[in-house]
Design a protein around this nucleic acid. Structure first.
Lengths: 214, 214, 214, 214
DNA sequence: TATGAATGAGCATTCATTCAT
DNA sequence: TATGAATGAATGCTCATTCAT
């Protein structure tokens, strides 16, 4: 237990708090203004700390952003860990519904992360993009392995184009998340979101699974 | 006679060429490096022109980028105009196949535009984003009106969630375009791309149209 | 006769007109915006001529400004030539009244010259100032020689500090001209200006001439 | 306690020194080269500080210049405050001699301020001029109120043109200051300057006061 | 650890000037 | 002569980063 803390042995709890505080604040501002328009001074002013303080914890602006990406990734993995145990042996469509809903709720619970991953991520710049892609890849791998398992269990067509199907699911999921969560417009109620998630899942099920599992 | 000249004194053919030359070059570099990492000097060096020359044609870097977006939009509309006549009275699924294929080939013919629209567009910054969104909206409106027409002609379910369905199609299309065209990886052959387009269209047809029109 | 023209033998009448046109326009704009804030393009746009045209007549911006100064100087000398004949043997105070009034009316007839000489002149920059000073010196020399003549004719105190008295007269004259003519405020009517000129002259007479010549 | 600090967190004594140091240096260079010919890099090189340092204290070049004007104005007011107490109930001519001498010595003690106010001030540019005029107006108001008081005490003619008389005094004073102090020529000795001040005052007294107060 | 004054590489932009037509 | 597209030296300013305290 207390695994989190033991990863970074040299950091005192206080220092770790400060680091998280900066990360938390940076997430909000990066999500709002993007990487390039965000200035270190924005973060520093927001937190009422010294201009040099972030540099105690992060090499530079890029490393700060990368740490942020990393922490979002970490959150996602934590989120998954706490869910996966239960999901196991449901009916195929139910399994998908649950998984899909999981992703959506993760983003809904942390729209700033959604904005950073879905809006700024692609095309940000050559040195940062790989790190964003890495997370993206993680999502994609999960989808892909789900599909493979589906084929294995004979609930998905053997000859389906796995890579393509993965992209269809991923594209739909990210667009839905982007449109209903990460845009700067009015936020959707959880109720309405659940409806949308359900409907979307039904559509995707139709193109993923063999007819008898719809 | 000589009407052209008297309308627009400063836009001689030569000056128009230079403007397009800058725009063309800017597209390639913006597509490769993004808005912020692209420097005017990159464009200027590439073209072997003076550092001040782009400023003869564009107010500033942002206006240059916006003009670029505008010219991509223009290209798209030209592209559509030249196609629309033929598309009219096909079977529903065929109609969709053709439309979908159209979008994909537009991007395939101009991958830099695809990169700019699909990668850098979302989340670039507050003052530019609206212009990117405007084009996005254009795509979305076309999809939406296609769906409405489908409902009207009774080939799509009356109670379908139009907004959601639009997002599913748009999300799928942009992801496919992004993945197979706009990423910085190896480019796909036209043959392979056509296969992918076809397969994707089949999937989407399943969730768009009533079963009898698949 | 036709002295003016013969000075510059190579210039055709047309070319001379164009040069004067540029000079005239430059005067107005320099008077309004000052040397540094005036751009060649301002002049060129105002005249609807090509951007390169002023460079047919003037080496560069500075030489254009210097030519302008020179032409103002020329105007002043022309103005003097046309007056001096009459002024000769009046009573001392009358002589001064007439001279003082002359300067003031010169500026009143050409307020732009007044602005350039009185406002921008001093302190403009190291390379231009000497040329402005040269004109200033011309005014000062005239004042000084008037004083010397007055001493000679025994109408001014022998032991007066000529340099200082010159400065007092010059300082008063330029301030009055500046205040009532060259500021950007409402312009004074000729009637009111004449009143002011008269009153000022009476004051100065008191400190210039021996009491019996007031 | 520690009140000072809590009022103005960013203005530590050290930072205030640096600001004054920049202001002081800027005064010398602006006085020498004028607003437009002075480059930030001139100041920065002179002080051996970083190119960005002035921007810690001033928004931009114009704001730096304006702050300088403001600080000259402040100096003048401080100078006045320390003198005014004594001046009160002298004979009219003595009062004027003292006042006039005061202005002259202020400029003599700080010729750079004189240069900036008297040479560059008028006509510098539309956005700066008002701030220079404001100080000029302050001088003018003092002269004017002196005249009004003189009329009240019956030592100046009732029907004198106050505005005009003010301009004559101001024009004379600024010309004398300009000629003997602010030109780039040899500087005058204090002894000689005092002589000039005295003589000038005598001249002005003749046109300001009724004869019995000369 | 925390601070914030100082730094300077880096960039967008300007504008007088040139020169081929 | 007149033009105006092209030029590029020059400059103001920004902002991530450093480091003495």
């Amino acid at each position: 237990m207390n695994l989190q803390k033991s990863i970074n042995k040299t950091k005192t709890p206080k220092s770790r708090d400060r680091k998280n505080q900066i990360l938390e604040c940076a997430k909000v501002i990066f999500a709002r203004k993007g990487f390039y328009e965000t200035q270190i001074i924005d973060i520093v002013n927001e937190l009422n700390i010294g201009k040099g303080t972030p540099y105690q914890y992060f090499e530079n602006k890029e490393e700060l952003f990368l740490s942020l990406i990393e922490s979002i990734y970490q959150s996602w993995r934590d989120f998954r860990r706490n869910r996966s145990s239960a999901a196991a042996l449901a009916a195929p469509a139910d399994y998908f519904r649950r998984e899909f809903s999981g992703i959506m709720h993760f983003f809904h619970n942390d729209p700033d992360s959604a904005k950073i991953l879905l809006r700024m991520g692609p095309g940000i710049n050559r040195s940062i993009e790989p790190f964003v892609s890495r997370i993206e890849q993680h999502f994609i791998d999960e989808i892909k392995s789900g599909i493979k398992k589906g084929i294995e269990f004979d609930v998905i067509e053997k000859d389906c184009n796995i890579e393509l199907l993965t992209n269809v699911i991923f594209g739909t999921a990210t667009r839905i998340a982007y449109y209903y969560i990460a845009r700067n417009n009015e936020t959707v109620t959880k109720r309405k979101l659940d409806g949308i998630i359900g409907e979307t899942a039904e559509m995707l099920i139709k193109i993923i699974y063999k007819k008898e599992y719809w």
